[in-house]
Amino acid sequence: MKKVCFLFAMMFVALNFVGCSENDEVSSSAENLLGTWKMVSSVYEGSSSITVQGQNIDSEYRGEFKNIEASMTITKNPNELLAEGSYDIDVNYSSNGISSSQTMSYNDVSNKAEWSLKDNI
């Protein structure tokens, strides 16, 4: 479960550095994203349903980031994204009526990736 939560956490860390509302004008220019972005908050939640050996397993989860000291830097030439920092995630989950919670701490996280625009988007 901890590995799954870590994967969800990393995905949401990357997605939550940049946000917009319905009224914001969307631009495909990479120039608007260049720089260092500080993560200030993140909450993720969802549900899943799987069948194992004929038995349905329904699950719900919610994670809230706490003690966030994380940032993401986006550069051009080279087109790189560097996310790094530390944070805790309070995770609550239930599966078939059994609930559990835990706090997971991630210290000195560092992930580097290349980025590109596809069809100017």
Results as ranks from 00 to 15, higher is better:
Met1Phe: 14
Lys2Tyr: 08
Lys2Leu: 14
Lys2Phe: 07
Val4Trp: 12
Val4Asn: 09
Phe6Asp: 04
Phe8Tyr: 11
Met10Trp: 03
Met10Pro: 01
Phe12Val: 05
Val13Phe: 01
Asn16Arg: 03
Val18Ala: 10
Val18Ser: 08
Val18Lys: 08
Val18Glu: 11
Gly19Trp: 03
Glu22Leu: 13
Asn23Lys: 10
Asn23Leu: 11
Asp24Ser: 15
Asp24Phe: 10
Ser27Gly: 05
Ser28Glu: 14
Ser28His: 12
Ser28Leu: 15
Glu31Ser: 12
Asn32Ala: 09
Asn32Cys: 14
Leu34Ser: 06
Gly35Ser: 12
Gly35Arg: 10
Thr36Leu: 12
Thr36Gln: 11
Trp37Lys: 12
Lys38Met: 12
Met39Gln: 13
Val40Glu: 08
Val40Met: 07
Ser41Ile: 06
Ser41Gly: 10
Ser42Cys: 14
Val43Ser: 10
Glu45Asp: 09
Ser49Gly: 08
Ser49Ala: 08
Ser49Glu: 09
Thr51Glu: 07
Val52Glu: 13
Gln53Ser: 14
Gln55Met: 15
Ile57Val: 12
Ile57Phe: 11
Asp58Cys: 00
Asp58Leu: 02
Asp58Val: 04
Asp58Gly: 04
Glu60Trp: 01
Glu60Ser: 06
Tyr61His: 09
Phe65Val: 03
Ile68Val: 08
Glu69Trp: 10
Glu69Val: 12
Ser71Thr: 08
Met72Gly: 00
Ile74Thr: 05
Thr75Trp: 03
Lys76Cys: 08
Asn77Met: 11
Pro78Met: 09
Pro78Arg: 12
Glu80Leu: 14
Leu82Ile: 10
Leu82Tyr: 03
Leu82His: 04
Leu82Asp: 00
Ala83Gln: 01
Ala83Ile: 03
Ser86His: 06
Ser86Leu: 07
Asp88Ile: 02
Asp88Leu: 03
Asp90Ala: 05
Val91Phe: 02
Val91Gly: 00
Val91Met: 06
Val91Cys: 05
Gly97Arg: 07
Gly97Lys: 08
Ile98Trp: 01
Ser99Gly: 04
Ser99Trp: 05
Gln102Asp: 11
Thr103Ile: 14
Thr103Cys: 06
Thr103Tyr: 06
Tyr106His: 02
Asn107Tyr: 06
Asn107Asp: 04
Asn111Gly: 08
Asn111Tyr: 15
Lys112Val: 02
Lys112Asn: 04
Lys112Asp: 03
Glu114Leu: 15
Trp115Cys: 10
Ser116Leu: 07
Leu117Val: 09
Leu117Arg: 12
Leu117His: 11
Asp119Gly: 11
Ile121Gly: 09
